[in-house]
């Protein structure tokens, strides 16, 4: 008799234990199901945002009338030729040492060919340069106040002070903007504005589309040139002017 009672109790305990386990499993499933649905909804929203972005993002890359991949309506012209016959486009990165080395050469060419050749600067900050993109943003922010050229020159002249460092050079660039007596509130706003970065990335996209892989890359009337010396440079420009 006591034996059967004991067995009955263990059976009861077993049943209640099984029920408890079952309930726990059910709760766990519900918890998991709701969490996964939340993740699912998030993924769907994310995918939708991507698609919308892709569709709208491909529009600015279209080429408008009077534009080309090399020169856009909003591209910065350092010098303008009266006849617009010859255009030299440089894709550049303010933190790139080779660009820094070409900078005085280009400055001299601008003087020599003043009024004859249009010089265009396009941003192409390389991902390997920590402050390259920041420098481009600083210059673009200055361009908003008509000081593109001054900031462009300042960047190259001071490259050895801020280049090749792995820390943000925001403070340094802010100093440049102050030295140029820019409206600092406006500059700061533009420096941090997503639109500024978009503007730079548009240049980068164009560069990639025409085969720019490194900096500086020069295009003379849409032809890629690789001048090894100042004389090379001049010969190419003279040929274009004569042609």
């Amino acid at each position: 008799m006591p034996d059967t009672q004991g067995r009955g109790q263990t059976a009861k305990a077993k049943i209640s234990k099984m029920r408890e386990q079952e309930q726990r499993a059910r709760r766990r499933r519900k918890n998991l199901a709701v969490s996964l649905s939340v993740i699912g909804v998030f993924a769907v929203v994310l995918a939708a945002v991507f698609v919308v972005n892709r569709v709208s993002g491909s529009q600015p890359a279209d080429i408008a009338a009077g534009e080309s991949r090399y020169v856009r309506a909003d591209s910065h012209k350092l010098s303008v030729a009266a006849d617009g016959k010859v255009t030299l486009v440089e894709f550049l990165d303010f933190e790139c040492e080779a660009c820094r080395a070409y900078f005085p050469v280009v400055e001299d060419l601008r003087k020599e060919y003043a009024g004859k050749v249009t010089f265009v600067a396009r941003y192409f900050p390389l991902p390997g340069h920590f402050n390259g993109e920041r420098a481009a943003r600083a210059v673009e922010a200055a361009a908003g106040q008509g000081k593109f050229e001054a900031m462009y020159q300042r960047m190259y002249e001071t490259q050895d002070q801020w280049g090749e460092k792995q820390v943000p050079a925001d403070e340094v660039f802010r100093g440049f903007a102050q030295a140029l007596a820019l409206d600092m509130t406006a500059w700061e706003k533009a420096y941090n504005a997503p639109a500024t970065l978009e503007r730079i990335n548009k240049d980068v996209e164009d560069g990639k589309a025409v085969g720019v892989a490194g900096t500086p890359t020069f295009f003379l009337n849409g032809e890629k040139i690789e001048p090894q010396s100042v004389d090379d440079f001049k010969a190419a420009i003279d040929a274009a002017l004569a042609g």
């Binding site: 519900k30 918890n31 998991l32 709701v34 969490s35 939340v38 993740i39 998030f42």
Partner: peptide
């Protein structure tokens, strides 16, 4: 009972903020 749900929401919120 739904312990993982608020946690999931938190993670997604931070991921979204970073994105």
């Amino acid at each position: 009972e739904y312990h993982a749900v608020p946690l999931t929401l938190w993670f997604l919120a931070v991921i979204a903020a970073i994105g």
